[in-house]
Computed example of a mutant assay.
Amino acid sequence: MSVEAAYEACAEITRREARNFSYGIRLLPPVKRQAMCAIYALARRIDDIGDGNMPSEQKLLALSATAERLRNLIRDGAAGAQDDPVLVALADAAARLPIALEAFDELIDGCRADVEGRQYESFDELVHYCRCVAGSIGRLSLGVYNPAEPERARPLADALGVALQLTNILRDLREDRQTGRVYLPREDLDRFGCSLELDSMGNLADPPERFAALVRFEAARAKDWYAEGLALLPLLDHRSAACTAAMAGIYRQLLNRISADPEVVRAQRLSLPASGKLRVALRAIVWGRT
C-alpha cells in the first residue's frame, strides 16, 4: 500500500468518526493534518475494540495483539506496518515528526480497564485513567505540533487531555451506565448521595438536587484542568494553537451547558450542532492568528 493511500484511509476514518476533533484537525497544515489523522485512526481502532460487542476475553486478546503490532512498528518502522493502512501512515508520520508512539500503550491500558469494568474509588484514581486514555492523545498530538519547548508543553498537553476526558465522562453518564460503566469516583457518589442507577426508562434516577450537585462538582474540577491545560496554547505555532483551541472550545461549550443544566445529561447524550462547532473553529482561527 502506498503512503498516500494509507493517509487517505486515515483521513476518511477521521471524517467519518471524529465528529468533534475533525474541526480542529482541518486547521493544521497538510503534513501535520495527515499525522493527526493517523494518530486518530489508531486511537479509534483501539477505542472500538474496547467498546465493541466481542466477549471481554476476545477484546483483551485484540488489545494485546494491537500492542504487539505497535511494538513492531516502533522497532522496525515502516517494515513493521505490513499492509495495514493505519500503521503505514503512522510509521511515515513518526519518521517525519517526533511522535512518541509509546503513548499508545497507555491508551491500550485505559481500554483494558474499561473492558475489565474497573471502577474508581478516588478522584486521583480517575485522573490516572484520564491520563491513560486522553492525556496520552495529548502527548501524541504534541509530537505533531512539535513545539520549541516540549518539556514545558508536555504536562500541559496531559492536563488538557484530562479536562477533555472529564467532559466526556459527564456527557456520557447515562450511556456509560447503560453499558455497566461508572467512572465517577465512589467517594464523590457517596458524598452527594448518588448511585447513578437507572430507572425503568433507562434514564439516571438520582434525585435532581443531588444529581445536579454531583455534576456541578465534577464540572468545576474539569474547568480547573482546562485552566491548566489551555496554558499550552501560547507554546504552539498559530495553526497548532488554532487546532487545539477548536477541539478544546467545543468540549468546553459542552461542559458549560452541562454545568448550567445538569438535567440535560440525565436522559440523553449532549452534543453541539454543527453550526456551533463551526463558530468555535472560526474563533479558534482568529485566536491562532493573534
Rank of each mutant, 00 (worst) to 15 (best):
A159S: 13
A220L: 09
L198N: 07
A103K: 10
A227S: 11
R118K: 15
R139Y: 07
W287V: 04
R69W: 05
N20Q: 07
D92W: 10
E116S: 11
K32H: 09
D124N: 14
D206I: 02
E4R: 15
R96G: 06
A222R: 00
A6E: 06
R45L: 14
A95Y: 08
V31Y: 02
S275T: 15
Q165P: 01
V88C: 13
G77R: 12
A157E: 01
A163I: 00
E187C: 11
A274W: 09
R131M: 08
E263K: 08
V115W: 03
P150H: 06
L232E: 02
P30N: 10
A245V: 08
L140H: 10
S195H: 09
L272P: 13
R210S: 15
N168H: 07
T290W: 15
P207D: 08
E149M: 11
A157H: 01
P207M: 07
L60E: 14
G249N: 06
R181H: 14
P207I: 14
D199M: 06
L90I: 14
L230A: 03
I99V: 15
P98C: 06
Y23Q: 05
A38R: 04
L170Y: 01
C194Q: 08
A134T: 09
L164A: 01
L140I: 08
V280P: 01
R186W: 05
C194R: 02
A35I: 12
N256H: 11
